[in-house]
Design a binder for these strands. Structure first.
Lengths: 299, 299
DNA sequence: TTGATACGATAAGTTTTACCTATGGCTGGC
DNA sequence: GCCAGCCATAGGTAAAACTTATCGTATCAA
C-alpha cells in the first residue's frame, strides 16, 4: 500500500478547516465526489478514520485532531521549500568555489571580493589560488565551480568568458629609463627574468619573445611577480609585468616602467566553468560583474 | 504549474543518495526513464536544476545541496505522520525496517521471523544486517525503525529495551578438549581469533581479555563467526562464540566447546528505536515478543 | 583512431489514477 | 410524508505515470 500524498494532506486540511465537503471541494477547485474519494482513500491508507460524518455535520475524530497540526506543518514546509527554489532562481547564492591563478589573485581579489559583496549578497566566496593546469583539473573534478585564468584554457569541456584584456609592460632598472624600448627580438637577447615553470604568464612572456619554452633557461626564476621586480631593481635584469600588477609591484621599487608602443603583448583574462554546470546563467552574471573591475583601477 | 509531490521528493532523495539514476531507480522500484522524467519534471517545477549530469557522474548542484536537507526533513515528517497513524492501532502492522548486527542475525532471524509471523500478522518485516555504528546512524536518519544489537548503544536519542543476556563460550581445537579452562588473563596470551574491526563482538571479546582494542593485532581477522570456528578447527587458535551461535557453528566443525565456570563473559542483546518514534508502545510489544526467543532454543 | 561500454535522455505505447457528471441513500426539518 | 441538504457511489474520460525499446554522447581500452 502506497503512502499518502501531499494532495491528500491538502484535501484533508481543507475539509478539516471547512468542516464541510462541498465547500472544501470548492476551495480545492475539484468536485465534491472527487474530494470525498480522496479523503476516503487517505483514511484507508492510514487505517483510521479522520472525520466523523454525522448526517448534518463533519467533525474530526480524535486521531484526526492529532493528525491535523502535523499535516499543516508538512504543508508549510513544502511551501517554504518552494519559496527556497524561487528565491534561488535569479541570482547566484551560496557557495562559489573560485580558483584564481597566482598572477591575477593578489591584484584582483580585494576589488573582486568587494564587488561581489555588492552585486551578489548571499554569495559565499571560497577562493583557491593555483596555476592553470591544476585549476582546470579541479574544475573537471567538480572541486571548483569556476576559475579565473588566462584564456584560452584549451579545454573543450569548459565554457570561457572573457573578462578583460590587459597589456604587459616592460620593467627595467631605473638606470635604463631613458633607453629606447627594445623590440621583442631584442628582449630575447637581454637578461629576461621569468616566473617559475608552470605559470602561464611565464609561457606568455616567452611566446612574445619567440623563445621556445622547452629551451633550457639560464636565468633565475622568481616565484612571484613581486620577487621579479625586486630582482630588476637590484639590476639583475629586466622583466614583463601584467598591467594590473604594475601599480602595486613597482610602487616601492627602484625600477622604470615602459609601455610598448606597438605590437603590445597582452593576455586575455577570463572566467571558465564546466559546460555541464547548470548555473551557467548565474555564473555569467558573476563574470559580468567582474568584468567591470579593471575599469575601476585605471586611474 | 502545480507544485511538487512527495513522490518527487522521494525520487530526488534517492538520486541524491545514490548519485546514479539507474541504482536510484532500482531503489524506487521504477524504471530509469521514469525516474529521469520525474526528476526532470521536479527541476522544471522548481525552475532550477537539482543535479549536474556529467557523462560519468551525477552530482548535486548548489541548489540541490540546499534542497536536499529540507526535502529529507519533509520526508521524515511524513514518515513520522504515517507512524502516528499506525500508533493508533494497538498492534504494529505494515512496514517495519529492522536492523540486526551480523553476530545476531544468522542465528536469530529464522525464529524471529517465525515468531513475528505468529504474534504480528500483517507486519511487513524488512531486515538490514549491518554493524552497530551504521545501524545507529540509520536509525537516527529515519532509514530504520528499530534495531537489534548489543547494549548499550551509548546513544541518548534512542530507547533501549533488553531482550536477553547471553553467555560467551570458548571454542578450541578438539585436541585441547581436556585442557583446563583458561582464565581471561590466560586468554590474552593465547592465539585468540577475532572478528574484523567494527564488530561489537570483537570489542566485547577484547574487553573480556583486558586487551586494548587499539593494540596492533597480529592475528588474522575473520569476517564471520563461521570463519572463526573453521579456523579454530584448523588449529589456528581459539575463539569465543556467543551462545546462540554455538549450535549452528560448531555442528560440523572439529572443535571443542567449553563454558566458563566463573566470571562468564556475556553480552546483553536488546532492541532500540528513536525516542521520538510515536510507535514506541507497539515496538515495545514487538520487543516483548522477541524476548521469548532464546527460551525456545535452549534444548 | 576505433569499437565497446556505461549511462542518462527520448520516444511510443499502455496502464493507472484522478477527475467529472449523474445519481443514490440517509437524515432532519417542515 | 415530502423536501432539502449532504456525503457516497457509479460510470465514463482525460491526464499522469510507468513500461520497454532506442538514441546520443562521453569514456576507456585496444
Amino acid at each position: 500500500m502506497a503512502g499518502f500524498t501531499l494532495k491528500h494532506l491538502r484535501y484533508f486540511e481543507s475539509v478539516a478547516r471547512e468542516a464541510h465537503f462541498g465547500r472544501a471541494a470548492d476551495r480545492c477547485a475539484i468536485s465534491q465526489p472527487a474530494l470525498s474519494m480522496q479523503i476516503k482513500e487517505l483514511e484507508q491508507i492510514l487505517g483510521t478514520p479522520l472525520f466523523e460524518r454525522n448526517s448534518r455535520a463533519v467533525s474530526l475524530t480524535q486521531f484526526g485532531q492529532a493528525f491535523a497540526p502535523r499535516a499543516r506543518e508538512i504543508l508549510q514546509a513544502t511551501d517554504d521549500l518552494s519559496d527556497l527554489a524561487r528565491a534561488s532562481q535569479d541570482q547566484l547564492i551560496g557557495r562559489l568555489r573560485l580558483g584564481v591563478i597566482p598572477t591575477v589573485a593578489p591584484y584582483m581579489l580585494p576589488r573582486m571580493i568587494h564587488q561581489l559583496g555588492q552585486s551578489h549578497p548571499g554569495l559565499d566566496l571560497q577562493i583557491r589560488e593555483s596555476m592553470t593546469p591544476r585549476l582546470v583539473q579541479e574544475l573537471k573534478d567538480g572541486r571548483l565551480d569556476a576559475a579565473i585564468l588566462a584564456l584560452p584554457s584549451a579545454e573543450p569541456s569548459l565554457i570561457e568568458v572573457s573578462l578583460f584584456t590587459e597589456d604587459f609592460v616592460l620593467v627595467r632598472p631605473m638606470s635604463d629609463a631613458d633607453q629606447p624600448i627594445p623590440s621583442s627580438e631584442k628582449l630575447a637577447e637581454m637578461h629576461l627574468l621569468l616566473l617559475e615553470e608552470g605559470h602561464c604568464f611565464r609561457d606568455q612572456t616567452l611566446a612574445f619573445c619567440n623563445i621556445q619554452s622547452t629551451r633550457p633557461w639560464d636565468g633565475f626564476d622568481g616565484s612571484s611577480l613581486s620577487t621579479l621586480v625586486q630582482m630588476v631593481g637590484a639590476g639583475m635584469g629586466i622583466t614583463l609585468l601584467p598591467d594590473m600588477a604594475v601599480k602595486v609591484e613597482t610602487r616601492s621599487a627602484n625600477v622604470a616602467v615602459a609601455r610598448f608602443a606597438d605590437h603590445t603583448p597582452t593576455r586575455d583574462i577570463g572566467m571558465v566553468w564546466r559546460k555541464s554546470n547548470p548555473l551557467g546563467l548565474q555564473l555569467r552574471k558573476v563574470a559580468s560583474a567582474l568584468s567591470t573591475l579593471p575599469d575601476s583601477q585605471n586611474n
